[in-house]
C-alpha cells in the first residue's frame, strides 16, 4: 500500500523543479496520509487497495498536480494572444500568396515551372507558426506584454477612403517576395522542357536592367511593409506608390527598347518572333498599368481630406 503512495509521489516529484522537489513532495505526502488517516478513522478500519487507489485518483494526475506548481502556467496569455493571432493570419496570407504564384506559374507553363528550392508549404507554415509562437512566448515570459498593447488613436487607418486592405498588401508582399527570391537566384524555376527539347532563357536586356529591377522589387516590398506598419500615413504611402509606379514604368520603357527579351532554343522551339510579340505586348500593358496606377494615386492625393474621408 505504501509502495503505491511512494510511486505516486515519485511520479509527481519527477515533474517538479529540483530545488523545491523534496519540500513539495514532503508536504503532499503529509496531506495525503492525513486524508487517508481521516478516512480510516471514519470507517473504523484500514483502507483496502481499491479504496487507496480511489484516494490517489481523487488526488489528481501526477502531471497535473506537479504542473500547478510551475511558474509558467501558459505559453501565450490573453494580452499577447491577439498579436500572436494577427501575426499568424498575416503570415499565412503571405505564404498562401507565395505558393499561389508558384501554382499559377506552374499552370501557365504546363507544369514546367516550380519553386524547387522552396520548402514544402506544410514545412514553411510549420516553421512560421513555430517562430511566431516562440517569439510571442518569449515576449510573454521575458518581455512586457502591456507595452505590446500600447497604441495611438492617430495611427489608426482612416475609416473611409480608398486604400489597400491588409489582405491586398499582404498578398502583394507575398508575390513581391517570390519575385525577389527568383530575381536574386535564391529560388530557381525550371526553364527547360527536355521532353520536347525546349529551353527558355532571359535575354541580355534583363541583365543590363538587373539592379534597377532589384531596386524596384525592394522598394515595392518596403512600401508594402510601410503601409502595413503605418496605415494612417495615407498621403505618404500614396506618394511612395506614385514614385514606385513611375519607377516601374520607367524601367519597362527602357526594357521595351530592346530587340530581344527571351532566348528560346532547342529543336522544338516555336518561332521566336511569336514569343517576342507576346512579351512586348505584356510589357506594354504593364507600362500602361504602372502609369494608370500613378495617375490614380496622384488624383486621390489631390482630393481634399474631408472628401477623402466621406467619399472614399
Amino acid at each position: 500500500m505504501n509502495e503505491m503512495i511512494e510511486r505516486y509521489l515519485a511520479a509527481v516529484g519527477r515533474e517538479l523543479p529540483a530545488p523545491e522537489r523534496a519540500d513539495i513532495v514532503a508536504e503532499l505526502r503529509d496531506e495525503f496520509l492525513t486524508q487517508v488517516e481521516s478516512r480510516e478513522a471514519d470507517l473504523g478500519r484500514p483502507l483496502d487497495v481499491a479504496e487507496m487507489e480511489a484516494e490517489l485518483l481523487a488526488f489528481g494526475n501526477p502531471l497535473v498536480v506537479a504542473g500547478r506548481y510551475r511558474k509558467v502556467q501558459y505559453l501565450i496569455g490573453p494580452q499577447v494572444f491577439p498579436f500572436w493571432w494577427s501575426a499568424v493570419k498575416a503570415t499565412l496570407v503571405v505564404i498562401a500568396a507565395i505558393y499561389a504564384v508558384l501554382i499559377i506559374l506552374g499552370l501557365i507553363s504546363g507544369g514546367h515551372v516550380s519553386g524547387a528550392d522552396l520548402p514544402s508549404p506544410v514545412v514553411l507554415v510549420g516553421v512560421a507558426f513555430g517562430a511566431i509562437t516562440l517569439a510571442c512566448a518569449l515576449v510573454e515570459r521575458f518581455g512586457n506584454p502591456a507595452r505590446l498593447a500600447r497604441w495611438r488613436p492617430e495611427r489608426l487607418p482612416p475609416a473611409h477612403g480608398k486604400h489597400a486592405s491588409r489582405f491586398e498588401l499582404l498578398t502583394e508582399l507575398g508575390m513581391g517576395i517570390v519575385f525577389l527570391l527568383w530575381w536574386t537566384g535564391v529560388i530557381h524555376f525550371r526553364n527547360s522542357v527536355p521532353a520536347i527539347g525546349l529551353r527558355i532563357e532571359l535575354a541580355q536586356v534583363w541583365t543590363e536592367w538587373f539592379w534597377w529591377i532589384l531596386g524596384y522589387a525592394i522598394v515595392e516590398i518596403g512600401s508594402n511593409l510601410a503601409a502595413l506598419a503605418r496605415p494612417d500615413r495615407v498621403s505618404v504611402i500614396r506618394v511612395i506608390v506614385i514614385w514606385r509606379s513611375l519607377l516601374g514604368a520607367g524601367i519597362l520603357i527602357g526594357v521595351i527598347q530592346a530587340d530581344q527579351f527571351l532566348i528560346v532554343s532547342g529543336p522544338a522551339a516555336p518561332p521566336e518572333h511569336m514569343f517576342e510579340t507576346w512579351i512586348r505586348g505584356g510589357i506594354g500593358v504593364a507600362i500602361a498599368l504602372f502609369l494608370a496606377r500613378a495617375a490614380t494615386e496622384a488624383w486621390r492625393l489631390r482630393q481634399p481630406p474631408s472628401a477623402m474621408r466621406v467619399a472614399g
Partner: peptide
C-alpha cells in the same frame, strides 16, 4: 478548495 489548487497557491 481542492488540495491541488490550495498548495500551489500557498507557495
Amino acid at each position: 478548495i481542492e488540495e491541488g489548487a490550495l498548495y500551489p497557491m500557498l507557495r
